[in-house]
Design a protein around this nucleic acid. Structure first.
Length: 392
RNA sequence: GCUGGGUUCGCAUAGCGGCAAUUGCUUGUGGCUGUAGACCACACGGUCGAAAGGCCUUCGGGGGUUCGAGUCCCUCACCCAGCA
């Protein structure tokens, strides 16, 4: 569907499904697997594009729902599209708003007259959102989501899907899958006749934790004319084991040669698992969110499975710790600052705290995935994986 | 010296006869995976209990009134303000 979009697998791991590839977009090439930092509102929270470049980020993930509400896709279109607007000038991908059907689905808002209403209502036609900003009504349909994404102008755009929460019974998930498939066809139809910028389109697989639905959805999406495939409906409340199983129930039914993005996964142990299953890209808010909460990722032996590869710099334990922010990391933050200093910044609620910790966390994941790419190329992926996962 | 105000769980506050006692901060613990998140939840005198809940000790010191006192009265100490 897109002339600007190519994906080539360069090397496959012998023992797992992990692979190294190159994705070509109008805004540049991307080495895969890659970690995709989330920049919901056309900014990766606290980090400038210059820093993202320095870190080695390759793709930034924006959000249709948020950008539609503010500043509006017309503004971003006029300012040259998402990448230019945020001065990133490199590859971007936009989420469709489908995730907000889930994340805002349980929430309510109190209107000025005191009435409490749900933020989301799903109909056959589409989804009605109440803006979390001002309570105003916004109708999202598959066509509308794609229309907005066309104006936002990201290199990769996503189908509008319904992402059911966990736990949901099989019948509800089946309905969500059917709706997602129906919407997918509408997205494709609209996209094909309006894709003036040559944006690449990704269908989304749903199915929750149900193997039959995962298979059915994977096969359905695979049959459609899509540039690449995203896997959604995970990390919505289920356990890690169920998340991994859902992926195992999905990946075998997807065409090997296509670029695959996993939506919303990105804890350290998960990264080894999903890349070993053949995921080429994944986005996650965790490094920037944790960055604002004072939690930094750490590599073995300091970071291990037991502490989930995380240190909480808020702890008084670090008050006088002169050591680097994390041991063994060569990012600017770890090289230049002590834990005691970051601890102080967090205690004092200084903005720099959030920036430095976010910088480190995004760097950390970006470089972890870089190590994974190198290991795959050298046929040492399993060794790298076990050195991390078996750490204690 | 006089007059008025004040002394409450680390800090700051509420409390005006039924109180182990408000709220904010701090502290501690837990949570966060396509971002309504620089966030959220819980705990924070001691002790027993799985829990419901029980028991003990607390609101500057001492004394008093009262069935019952951070709460009212007397007195002492210290702090603040105004007048001398």
């Amino acid at each position: 569907m897109s002339n600007n979009f190519f994906f080539k697998i360069l090397h496959k791991d012998k023992k797992t499904k992990a692979r190294v590839g190159k994705l070509t977009t109008a805004h540049g090439d991307i080495n895969t697997p890659t970690f995709t930092p989330v920049g919901t509102q056309a900014t990766v929270k606290t980090l400038s594009p210059f820093e993202l470049k320095e870190i080695g980020a390759q793709l930034v993930f924006g959000n249709t729902y948020h950008l539609h509400l503010r500043p509006g896709e017309e503004v971003i279109d006029k300012l040259g599209g998402l990448a230019k607007f945020m001065s990133w000038n490199s590859p971007t991908i936009t989420d469709s708003g489908g995730f907000q059907v889930f994340s805002l689905g349980q929430k309510t808002i109190t209107l000025e007259d005191g009435e409490e209403v749900g933020l989301v209502g799903i109909t056959g036609k589409g989804v009605q959102f109440r803006s979390h900003l001002d309570g105003s009504k916004h109708m999202f349909t598959p066509e509308k989501s794609i229309e907005i994404q066309h104006k936002l102008g990201a290199d990769l755009i996503l189908a509008f899907d319904q992402c059911p929460a966990y736990p949901s019974n099989e019948e509800d998930v089946r309905k969500a899958v059917e709706r997602t498939h129906d919407w997918l066809l509408r997205c494709i139809s609209y996209h094909k006749s309006n894709n003036k910028k040559g944006q690449a389109f990704l269908g989304i697989v749903q199915g929750g934790v149900y193997a039959n639905l995962r298979k059915q959805s994977a096969e359905f999406v695979s049959r459609q004319d899509v540039d690449a495939i995203a896997i959604g409906g995970v990390a919505v409340g289920e356990s890690k084991d169920l998340m991994r199983k859902a992926l195992l129930d999905t990946m075998p039914y997807l065409p090997e040669e296509k670029f695959k993005h996993l939506l919303g996964i990105g804890e350290v142990d998960d990264i080894f698992d999903i890349t070993s299953q053949g995921i080429d890209s994944f986005d996650c808010v965790i490094p920037t969110r944790f960055g604002r909460y004072g939690i930094v990722f750490a590599s073995p032996p300091e970071g291990n499975r037991k502490n989930k590869f995380r240190l909480d710099l808020n702890k008084t334990f670090y008050k006088t710790d002169a050591g680097p922010v994390t041991k063994g990391c060569d990012c600017k933050v770890c090289v230049n600052y002590s834990r005691a200093y970051l601890h102080h910044l967090f205690k004092a609620n200084e903005i720099l705290a959030y920036r430095l910790a976010s910088y480190h966390n995004v760097y950390f994941l970006t470089h972890l995935v870089k190590q994974i790419r190198e290991a795959i190329l050298e046929d040492k992926f399993e060794d790298l994986k076990s050195s991390w996962i078996n750490s204690r």
